[in-house]
Nucleic acid binder design. Structure first.
Length: 617
DNA sequence: CCTGACTGCCC
DNA sequence: ATTCTGC
DNA sequence: GCAGAATGGGCAGTCAGG
């Protein structure tokens, strides 16, 4: 079979981009996969998804928006501010690149590259690092783009940004795999199950091409290969949760970092699995061995990043577990051993690091609350009911110091649920997780087997919503480009200084109609320069500034200390662990509605401080 | 050797 | 993370 | 109800440049 040309691939992507129906997309994708040969089909899958490798071995490009502007400028000899202004208007670097390529009259059209050649070059560029690498990346990407057709450039330029914006992702691609082999719903389900335990579409399609669906049967849960984590849905009220779940258990929801922990002990001095290391070699990584005598531990984040090196304390504790092999799901959170209090998410995040790991581990000891067991002593438990998985989890002898089982209470009424919810909130936790006792571990799925109910679900996350002044806005990308807005900057009023200080950017909560309304309302307020009474960090510089006029109601989950937002900065606040000069901001801000209020009637910095104090207790 | 812009990944 | 939209 | 695509705050790491 001939290798596919990139131009041909690009035409297929254009067809996909202009297709809205998922059914049709599946058909087009199936045809594309059928047309590609074994050697290239994996690469084609990754490229389709805007990647170069499966998520769990993600290749960091270290090239994104800003660098791509430079690439386009350099590649097609257009001033950078010209590229930037086109980008602001179109909201998509692929479209900008395509136009510039079309207008480009310079030499440099090489022959028609194959998809695999483009892939290989992108991978080479991504892997470049160290001194001078940024410049080399810009030059290499620019040279690559010049070798492609305008349509090829459109998609090639989007790949380093990690998304092709074609309207499909992993799941749709899997459906296409099933269709490729002439399968139906059953086959989709089968392939998806395999994908959940081997989240690598490229690998799965290679297996199917070589050995058919039969070959996929060999794929099982493997220590060292992450399983897609199960995710929780949300519901508006506790009554609805009880109604929906029937018999379920309640666990506290901790505000930490999700960890999937794999353990494999040696049998007769032989590690049961060596795939982790061999797979790393395949991708030329310098993965250091983490085996202490006989026990391999690896830890994955929610997005399947290998974070083993960041948690040596967890590794040590897990190695002591009296089992041959296991995969556990849990949440890690930093705590203060003197007060026994859990620390805010921002503190836990400091444990996610590459350097000074041991020092930080001592400063910020962790608790890991295990809440699920997916694999034990060589056997997958994914199909085992949650109640039984939980029973097995409790039989593991956890050390009770770092490793603990999450508290777990069977519940069948809204009254009991409410009681537990109140208890956990009083302990300063985020809320509760409600889990069906009879459900399997639904890897990769966000569904109603698990339902989260957070503090913020109680109508509002904060003691009250915030009325913020809209100070300016930012150009939208992708589908937001047509509104001319993608997000806006909101501020609160400081009456002492008679000025507005920023508290959040807001980019969600508006319907398409509200975005249009936003544009209408904001038009008459536009001014050329930032008003003098606005106190804004330079990182938050808006694309368009507005004089005071529009006030909006904003909800959020929490008020947090901020290194960039200026709200209440300089006021004497008692803050744990925050440096002087920090302001306040909102966590997960979203618009509730437009208000008809005067700018001076916006929430004041004192009121924000009061909200901040209230949540501390 | 330090700082700031940028990137990627946690939520 | 939250939220909205099209299928 | 699912899949996908917009968007948030904030942390650490990388690299360029003073």
């Amino acid at each position: 079979m001939r290798l596919m040309k990139f131009s041909s691939f690009a035409r297929c992507l254009r067809e996909l981009e202009s297709t809205a129906s998922r059914k049709e997309m599946v058909g087009i994708l199936a045809e594309l996969l059928k047309r590609s040969s074994e050697e290239e089909v994996g690469k084609i899958c990754y490229l389709c998804l805007g990647r170069l490798a499966p998520v769990y071995r993600s290749v960091e490009f270290n090239v994104a928006e800003k660098t791509m502007l430079k690439v386009l400028s350099f590649s097609f000899g257009v001033r950078e501010d010209e590229v930037r202004s086109r980008y602001k208007k179109l909201g998509d670097l692929g479209s900008v690149a395509e136009l510039l390529r079309g207008e480009y009259r310079g030499a440099g059209r090489g022959g028609d590259l194959e998809v695999a050649e483009v892939y290989n070059e992108l991978l080479r560029i991504a892997r470049d690092s160290g001194a001078g690498s940024q410049e080399r990346k810009v030059h290499s990407l620019a040279a690559l783009l010049r070798k492609l057709s305008p349509l090829g450039v459109r998609y090639c330029a989007r790949i380093p940004l990690g998304q092709l914006r074609l309207g499909f992702s992993d799941v749709t691609l899997i459906e296409a795999l099933a269709v490729m082999v002439g399968g139906g719903k059953e086959e989709v389900k089968f392939i998806r199950q395999k994908f959940n335990i081997r989240p690598d579409v490229g690998e799965i399609v290679r297996v199917i091409k070589l050995h058919g669906l039969e070959g996929l049967k060999e794929v099982g849960v493997e220590i060292g290969t992450p399983i897609l984590p199960a995710l929780a849905e949300r519901m508006p009220t506790m009554e609805k949760i009880v109604e929906k779940l029937g018999e379920f258990a309640v666990e506290p929801k901790m505000d930490g970092i999700r960890l999937q922990i794999h353990l494999n002990k040696a049998v007769n001095g032989q590690p049961l699995v060596d795939s982790l290391e061999s797979q790393r070699e395949l991708f030329n990584e310098q993965g250091s061995k983490k085996e202490s005598p006989g026990a391999l531990v690896c830890i994955f984040s929610r997005r399947l990043d290998d974070v083993t090196d960041m948690f040596p304390d967890v590794v040590a504790a897990v190695q002591k577990l009296p089992v041959d092999s296991a995969i556990m799901d849990g949440e890690a959170i930093a705590y203060n051993p003197d007060t026994e209090e859990f620390l805010p998410f921002q503190e836990t995040m400091k444990r996610k690091r590459k350097y000074n790991v041991a020092q930080k581990a001592a400063e910020l000891p962790l608790k890991v609350f295990l809440f699920d067991l997916l694999f034990l002593n060589g056997k997958s438990l994914l199909e085992t009911a949650f109640g039984e998985r939980r029973r097995l989890l409790e039989k593991l002898v956890l050390d009770g110091n770092l490793l603990m089982a999450a508290r777990h209470t069977k519940v069948n009424s809204a009254r009991k649920l409410k009681k537990l919810f109140d208890l956990y909130i009083s302990e300063g936790l985020e809320g509760v997780m409600c889990k069906r006792l009879d459900s399997p571990y639904q890897a990769g799925a966000r569904n109603f087997n698990w339902v989260k109910y957070k503090r913020s679900a109680e109508g509002v996350g904060l003691p009250d919503t915030v009325d913020g002044l809209v100070m300016g806005y930012y150009a939208g990308r992708g589908q937001r480009a047509k509104f001319g807005v993608g997000a806006f900057l909101a501020g609160v009023f400081n009456p002492q200084k008679d000025r507005f200080e920023t508290i959040a950017k807001v980019g969600t909560g508006l319907t398409d109609d509200q975005w249009r309304e936003f544009s209408r309302r904001v038009g008459p307020l536009e001014v050329k320069a930032k008003p003098a009474e606005y106190c804004v960090a330079k990182e938050l510089e808006c694309d368009a500034w507005l004089r005071p006029g529009l006030v909006v109601e904003i909800d959020a989950d929490e008020v947090t200390c901020s290194p960039v937002h200026t709200a209440a900065r300089g006021l004497n606040i008692v803050r744990t662990g925050a440096e002087n000069g920090a302001g306040l901001s909102l966590r997960f801000p979203r618009l509730v509605r437009f208000r008809d209020k005067l700018p001076e009637e916006a929430t004041t910095v004192e009121e924000i401080m009061e909200m901040y104090r209230m949540q501390q207790t």
